[in-house]
Amino acid sequence: MSTLSNQPPSHEVPEAFQDPGVPTEHRPRRADVDERAAKRAERQVAALFGMSALGTVIALVSYFALDIGDGNDIQAIQRINMGIGIGVALAMFGIGLGAIHWAKTLMRDHEMVEDRHELRSSDETREAALQDLRDGAKDSGIGVGRRGLLKGSLITALAVAPLSLLVPQLGGLGGDWNLDKWRRTMWAPGVRLARDPDGTPIRAADVTIGSVFHVIPEGLIDLEHPLEAKAKAVVILIRLDPKDLKIVPGREDWSFDGIVAYSKICTHVGCPVALYEQQTHHLLCPCHQSTFDVSDGCKVVFGPAKRPLPQLPIAVDDEGYIVSQRDFEEPIGSSYWERLK
């Protein structure tokens, strides 16, 4: 089948080098020839094993004698951690170093040779194995070209049987499989913007130029399971000097006197984009460093994200609190296949 072959080996006049064989001379260790050195090595090994036992004692004494404290005494926790830990380390090192030192100095170190056997089975074994299989196939009556119906139905049954288990198992994994949940957040007309984490609403007057507020919808903290809602609804609220702010066409009434609100969830893979630089008006994601320009519709100016952060349209209610006009106009966070469907 192959059209390849090795080049014929070039015929050198003298043969190749000969394997000189395993070196015969054996350089003796000090302990091999000097009984005193051997005794010394034995004492060293014994001392190491003794060190191990001492380590165990240190660990146990630390465990029983040291107090872990009331959680505010960092040093107390450090002490007990270190006391037990160093005890364990000594207990382990002592055994390990002792055993290795023993092996290195006192155990016989003459190298020995053992033959390998080729892994391939002999031709007879292979033939015998094949014959066994053929016999078995014959006994079962499913030799080549026979009982096609039986074989076909068995294969079909084996192929589809896993589905009887897998479909119910996998089917239950994803809850209600309702991807539409990714399109909606808690933001709705008139929902107040509130401080994260205490949930108090924010007045427009509170947001001075250069300020940044980390925002959740009012009422979020009263939910029984707030994390899923929070994972979509977190917003970052920033006030810029209105003359620094470039308004995206069509969003003229989405901001309020330089106050803008953007989703805090990165359009790359969903980290919270939270690092706001007051001078450059850049928002940086600490995970993969996508950088968004708040003064220009949160467009991406650097990094692996492609899309701007979704903007939350805001207004100010009668009492001076900032509220959302409605939900985001696009799904927040990272892209997914059905995002625009």
């Binding site: 401080r195 509170d206 250069g210 300020s211 940044v212 007051q278």
Partner: peptide
């Protein structure tokens, strides 16, 4: 005061 790159965290925030 929000020095340099740092945003301001006023007493209302």
């Amino acid at each position: 005061t929000g020095p340099q790159s740092m945003p301001v965290f006023n007493e209302a925030n």
